[in-house]
Amino acid sequence: MIGLGPLLRKELLEQWRTRRMLVVAIVFTAFGIGSPFLARYTPELVKALAGDQLEIIIPPPTVRDAADQFLKNLGQAGILTAVLLAMGSVAVEKERGTAALLLSKPASRAAYLLAKMLGITATLGVSLAIAAVGGFAYTAFLFETLSPVNWAAMTGLLLLMLVVYAALTFLGSTLTKSSIAAAGIGVGGMILVAIIGVLPGVGPYTPGGLSSPAMALALGTDAGNVIGPLLTNLGLVAGLLAVSWLVFRRQEL
């Protein structure tokens, strides 16, 4: 793949110099450490707000609640961030003419797309890793210490889920010259995946279906079949990138 190294270096530098990586890392870390905190103190806050007049029975929070909050909060914030990061990645450079300028140098279109997607993945991955360290520490302090390897495995599955949604939006960004339209395609794809996930037997293989084994992995319980959903989602990312390339290689820039 001609020019992948320099293009990837340019992408990573851009993610850092435009402060995208820093800002996403701060946002994810806030959600990462905020999740166990909320899991621990929300029942007490509800009780305090309800006062003595209402008798509310809330079971004491457990480490499961902390992992659940972590997955839910970072899942939602992460999907939104993945869409925001990917929506303008190719579309804006096509609109500004930067893509044509870059590809006038010895670099293939496949390398250009792969470098862009790897840049987005790096931002999501680094940010999620920092958030996971914070979330792990807060969970250990407020509840109990889970296995760091299991927590890392959960984070890995969460990252894969975000990368699938980023790849969906990335395809949209390749198809159009408008970042808003790209976001629309990304969100439309997410809805489509959610609908497909309702079909019997398909749900566990969708990106959203990764959250159940991720939760089980974090808690060290039986995660069931992880390899199938893992390979399916990796294949989905590869497939979306391949379609992006098929579209992009014939486009007039």
Binding site: R19, L22, V23, I26, V27, T29, A30, I33, G34, F37, Y41, E44, A48, G134, Y138, F141, L142
Partner: peptide
């Protein structure tokens, strides 16, 4: 639970929020 008890855990969250705002501004 008292405010003094949860304050040390809240401070990192507040610092992150303020850092984000500071970098943006």
């Amino acid at each position: 639970m008292t405010f003094e008890e949860i304050l040390p855990l809240l401070i990192p969250l507040l610092v992150l929020q303020l850092a984000l705002m500071g970098v943006g501004l």
